[in-house]
Design a protein around this nucleic acid. Structure first.
Length: 256
DNA sequence: CGATTTTGACCTGCGC
DNA sequence: GCGCAGGTCAAAATCG
């Protein structure tokens, strides 16, 4: 009968270990949530700054100035870079058995091509926005190489119209969109030394706990230290790519 | 019957 | 110049 206390003791130890493990994972999860929130906020502030810079540049060239004078226009014309449309990537979780490359993002798309690419055995589909005549937006959709249940949609350009409202709300609540990565063009990068990619990691299925966590974080006095840490991490392209892949995997493993 | 998808051909840019 | 790969076109097929 001496064995009985030993068994309960080992059980207690196991329970304690598991509780500690759960706590540790909860902390880790919380930290990752904070990282994602911070990256999102950094992106928004950078985007605002970028738009400001664009406005300043446009005003500077609309009004006749020394640098934009017509005298040396012929010499400078060759150097003028035509701004290419902004490209962004969005990952969608789908059924891996579903062979179609259709994602519900609130817009109507017309498929105009499909190709097998070298780096990925799954075909890449090309779509044009058919919702509004003259809308310049295109998108490419291809299955993720690592996870066939994830569709990678690359959007080019900006819509000149609004999406269907009910599609937007449903796409944001049903958890089909898992992560959005906005890829700015090289010339828009503010720091020439920093990587030429800015990530926009948006958790579409943000729940109440996430919002509360964010609120608590805002009140956190150590916020600046964390932001500095995140800023250093986001300057590492391999980290940002790995983070995006990890987020995609986590949403696939733990569907909401 | 019009809209959409499919798919092979063609175009273009890039590296060698 | 050539070959390759990505992107686009357009005729045929399919769908509602």
């Amino acid at each position: 009968m001496d064995a009985q206390p030993d068994i309960s003791q080992s059980h207690r130890e196991k329970v304690q270990y598991l509780q500690e493990e759960i706590e540790r994972l909860q902390k880790e999860n919380k930290n990752l949530s904070l990282l994602l929130e911070l990256i999102d906020r950094n992106y928004n502030s950078l985007r605002a700054q970028l738009q400001l810079n664009k406005q300043i540049q446009q005003r500077g060239c609309v009004a006749p100035t020394e640098s934009c004078s017509s005298q040396d226009d012929s010499n400078k014309r060759a150097k003028i870079e035509i701004p290419r449309p902004k490209a962004s990537q969005v990952l969608f979780r789908t059924d891996s058995k579903d062979a179609s490359l259709v994602v519900k993002d609130g817009y109507q798309w017309r498929k105009y091509g499909q190709k097998i690419t070298k780096d990925n055995p799954s075909p890449r589909a090309y779509f044009r926005c058919s919702m509004f005549p003259g809308c310049p937006v295109k998108k490419k959709v291809q299955r993720c190489l690592e996870d066939s249940s994830v569709l990678v949609a690359t959007y080019e350009g900006e819509h000149n119209h609004e999406p269907e409202a009910h599609h937007v709300s449903s796409s944001l609540t049903n958890g089909s969109m898992i992560v959005s990565i906005t890829n700015f063009l090289p010339q828009t990068s503010i720091d020439p030394v920093a990587p030429k990619v800015t990530l926009d990691l948006t958790l579409s299925g943000a729940n109440q706990e996430m919002k509360e966590t964010h609120q608590r974080f805002v009140e956190d006095s150590n916020k600046n230290k964390v932001e500095e840490y995140v800023a250093s991490l986001t300057k590492d392209p391999s980290f940002t790519a790995a983070l995006a892949a990890a987020v995609a995997r986590s949403f696939t493993q733990f569907p909401s």
